[in-house]
Design a protein around this nucleic acid. Structure first.
Length: 596
DNA sequence: GCCGTTTTCGGCCCGACTGTTTTCAGTCG
């Protein structure tokens, strides 16, 4: 049985829950949660670390004891302490913890004092009035519990970043008109460019807080006011999205922004650093005793603990603090660094705009190049191209390039990687192209070994440039298929091929962790939109956000290269030497020679 | 249970708000 880091992380999180019910030392509980977080953020499977004789206790938050529990889990599939807690705690316990307003104390009271062992029993007990016997269960809590039990679980409650931007834009515009408002900034996971957001956190400054809070809770898209105090309020929008507003004075702006941007793990680490210097850091500032010594800007907060400014996308406590202390923070990719798009579709297959419309729209966005990469015939639902129709499109692109439109159009294909690892079009056909983007669109449920083998075989073909949306996940809809990513990335490196970060906001596949893996292996990442209509060419910004979360710099990204250099790199993946390029695309190079 | 610019023992981030309480538990970030 293959054990993945997420499996161990889940086990540790469950252990933490069960220990909490057991009223264990809170710091011991936190140690399990910290270790789980470390495991989720690792770019290497611990099973491989063990195999290569690495000392697990060198990982942050993992000491002798947890290292030995990890080894137990790898060897036996069990952790003795977890099994023991399962024996002494009813199975319903962890289900109860997931209900609103139920923490360890109330959950424990339910199964110990009322003998509740299923959610159905809890439902009945509330209706029968049996909860009245217990203290700590007032009318509001019973109402919320009933509501939670009677509405079916919605599954993923996180909102894709792209959806959130729509509501956030309108709400921020509303807040900027609030009486006495000075500044409004969206913080939280939104500011950190997480692929999905649980809720929206907004920091505002104003001399008088109350009118701003009132302006906020009276926004006309508010469905429900969940909380409203003198400095903070929480609302639920009609869309279901929850929004927190925190109003502070201008002198606390940087501290509040830092605090509300998170992540929680990053903040805890920063505060612990402050503590060692005799400082207290909260959302109002950095304090030595009663004296505020910083807090107007985030830079000040970092400076108070001896660090340079850290970009929000890096704030996950995954090594950014150590990098900052060593002066080795990455110089993150900027949107303007991208010179073009290497994965797009047109109405020749399942796109909505013509070739010319896509090309002109890309030029309008300032791109120096765009690659047209239609589906191949195996993807029948997209009306994928057969050799005849591909040849026709190649000729069409050649003619378009002869018009000197001020943008280079690259001839590509998003060729299907078939189940046996063959490509959907013959080598002779693919050989006419500037680049071959390979992707999986079927048989997602193969075993890890078979799925990996399938991709590795495809990489052995004479023409293969970029592996597109490498795990096929669709946020909230489809789980990633199971592949051995380190092995795939090593194979891409060996072949001199590239990996895609699909910027479509429902894909964003590579993940941040895999971006770092590619970067460290020296495999260039292609950030591409997979646009099926001209508007979607704007999705590149989501890809940039994800790339920044993955520590990518300009030098790590394929399509930051000017056209001539890009052509050279692509030609190698097509089995050609640099001079012998297919077609006669006109080259437009605006940025050649810019130094890094 | 982890960890070490005071420490191998004794610390471990911090505060707002709600509900059910009269000092606290739970949740959130």
């Amino acid at each position: 049985m293959a054990v993945h880091n997420v499996d161990i992380a889940r086990a540790f999180e469950e252990l933490a829950d069960l220990l909490e019910l057991d009223e264990a030392n809170p710091f011991r509980i936190r140690a399990y949660r910290n270790a789980a977080q470390t495991l989720r953020g690792l770019d290497t499977e611990v099973v491989d670390l063990v195999r290569s004789q690495h000392e697990l206790s060198e990982l942050p938050g993992i000491g002798k004891d947890l290292a030995s529990k990890i080894r137990d889990y790898l060897e036996t599939g069990h952790i003795e302490l977890l099994d023991e807690l399962h024996r002494t705690t009813p199975a319903v316990a962890t289900e109860l913890l997931r209900l609103p307003r139920l923490g360890p104390k109330r959950a424990k009271a339910l199964y110990e004092k009322l003998g509740i062992h299923t959610l159905e029993q809890l439902h009945r007990a509330i209706l029968d009035g049996r909860l009245d016997e217990l203290s700590g269960f007032g009318p509001a809590i019973k109402r919320d519990l009933l509501h939670a039990l009677e509405t079916k679980p919605t599954g993923a409650t996180r909102t894709p970043l792209v959806t959130a931007t729509v509501y956030v834009g309108a709400l921020v515009a509303h807040l900027k008109r609030a009486p006495g408002i000075e500044a409004v900034t969206v913080a939280g996971s939104y500011r950190r460019s997480q692929e999905t957001v649980g809720d929206i956190d907004i920091v505002a400054t104003a001399r008088d807080h109350k009118p701003v809070i009132e302006w906020f809770t009276h926004y006309d898209e508010v469905a429900k006011i969940l909380a409203a105090g003198p400095t903070r309020a929480t609302i639920q929008l009609r869309s279901g999205l929850q929004v927190d507003l925190r109003v502070v004075s201008a002198e606390s702006y940087g501290a509040a922004l830092h605090y509300f941007t998170g992540s929680k793990a990053h903040n805890i680490a920063i505060r612990a650093m402050g503590q060692k210097r005799g400082l207290k850091i909260n959302e109002y500032g950095v304090f030595r005793g009663a004296k505020r010594i910083a807090g107007v800007t985030e830079e000040e907060v970092y400076k108070s603990v001896g660090l340079p400014y850290i970009e929000p996308e890096l704030r996950e406590n995954r090594g950014e603090l150590e990098a900052a202390a060593a002066g080795q923070l990455p110089h993150l990719l900027e949107p303007r660094d991208l010179k073009g798009d290497l994965h797009t579709h047109t109405s020749a297959t399942d796109g909505h705009n013509t070739l010319r419309e896509m090309v002109l729209a890309a030029k309008e966005r300032g791109h120096a190049y765009i690659a047209i990469t239609e589906h191949s015939r195996h993807v029948t639902i997209a009306h994928g191209l057969d050799p005849g129709r591909l040849h026709k499109q190649i000729d069409e692109i050649d003619r378009l390039n002869e018009e000197n439109l001020g943008i280079a159009v690259l001839k590509g294909i998003e060729v299907d990687i078939l189940e046996d690892g063959k490509l959907d079009l013959a080598d002779a056909v693919l050989g006419r192209l500037d680049l071959v983007v390979g992707a999986i669109h079927s048989r997602f449920n193969l075993s890890r070994a078979k799925q990996t083998e399938r991709i590795l075989r495809a990489l052995d073909r004479p023409h293969f440039s970029i592996l597109a949306h490498p795990t096929g996940r669709l946020l909230g809809e489809r789980e990633p298929y199971d592949i051995d990513m380190p092995r795939v990335i090593a194979a891409l490196k060996e072949r001199g091929a590239f990996i895609e970060l699909n910027a479509h906001p429902e894909r964003l596949d590579l993940t941040d962790v895999h971006c770092r893996l590619a970067k460290n292996a020296g495999v260039l990442v292609s950030i591409a939109t997979d646009a099926h209509r001209v508007q979607e060419l704007g999705y590149l910004s989501f890809g940039v956000g994800q790339a920044r979360r993955g520590w990518l710099e300009r030098i790590d990204v394929l399509n930051t290269r000017p056209l001539r250099e890009l052509r050279t790199l692509l030609a190698r993946t097509m089995g050609r030497s640099e001079g012998a390029l297919g077609g006669k695309a006109v080259e437009h190079e605006h940025s050649r020679g810019t130094s890094h």
